[in-house]
Design a protein around this nucleic acid. Structure first.
Lengths: 166, 166
DNA sequence: TAACAAAAGTAGGCGAGGCTAACAATGTCA
DNA sequence: TGACATTGTTAGCCTCGCCTACTTTTGTTA
């Protein structure tokens, strides 16, 4: 499969989600999940069938081929990565984090993905035992107030200008 | 103007860039910048003219209307914000940061944008005088090694498990 | 100023991804 | 088992953003 459109990627992800959740995927379910009409699903799915990513018998259920499953799982992992960033770091609520992740997922470069993975791991590792850094950002993003300088030495750099402890 | 497609947004941004840089915008310049042929530009631009975002006389130069300029400037600011994140935080090179920013810009929600602005401001403010946090992430993303614990107390939380100073 | 080059525009086609309307297959149940 | 509801498919149309081939306008210059 040469290069999937963003929309085809959405269809693949949706098929994987439904497959995990309902065991069997119908045109109707897919249409509902993606907010389109059945003939649209039939059209896009027929393209995915040609690409060898999806199987379906006439008037039958839809399923991912092994190749399609690999692709879909990768896409879903990438989306999940972004969702984590939007929710855990930027503190968006779950719905909005998912929406952004789902839309953005198609458009970031592999290296960008890698860096984001690193970034999230970094936050996790370096927050072990003292995961205050994100709390401070949360506070800042709500109030616009930087954390008080007397915490600098304890928790993270903060604004050290004029701070004698630094 | 109801709702612009991602592609139309690209055209608006390109017009603004060229306008700032060359004073006068031609179909040909736009085609070159966007990597398409002239008739494509003519088609999209005619839509933007109908939407009241762009002016152009027959066989004449292209320019943004006041409304179009406002829209384009907003789009460009958003792109710039993302570019900053990708370049300064995720440490992507300028070209790749720009590419990601340009592609992603169309798809993030306003609240997500706000949070990203906050996030970048937070990093700036809280790094004043001791902007080591991002350096540490940079090191981590290259080597996979968390920063040594003996820096914890000085610079940022780090991994405090087993660190007697914490 | 006439001729030519360069740029813009028009005509018409294509594929993706939507839609509605109509039709075909399948499933269910009295 | 026959009738009806549900679901999937086909046909045909639309818009968007792209293209090539061709025409028209504009600008330059001999």
């Amino acid at each position: 499969m040469s290069k999937l459109s963003a929309r085809s990627e959405d269809y693949l992800k949706a098929i994987l989600r439904l497959q995990d959740q309902k065991k069997v995927v119908r045109v109707k379910d897919l249409a509902q999940l993606l907010g389109v009409r059945s003939p649209t699903v039939v059209g896009v799915v027929s393209g995915l069938k040609e690409g060898g990513l999806v199987d379906q018998e006439h008037y039958g259920y839809i399923s991912l081929t092994p190749e399609g499953k690999v692709v879909a799982e990768t896409l879903l992992q990438n989306e999940e990565l972004l969702r984590t960033f939007f929710e855990e770091v930027l503190n968006l609520d779950s719905g909005e984090a998912t929406q952004n992740a789902c839309n953005v997922e198609h458009f970031i470069t592999p290296r960008c993905r890698e860096r984001l993975v690193s970034f999230i791991r970094f936050l996790e590792i370096c927050g072990r035992g003292a995961p205050k850094w994100l709390d401070h950002f949360r506070h800042f993003s709500l109030t616009g107030e930087p954390p008080p300088c007397d915490r600098c030495g304890e928790i993270f750099p903060g604004d050290r200008r004029g701070c004698e402890k630094a």
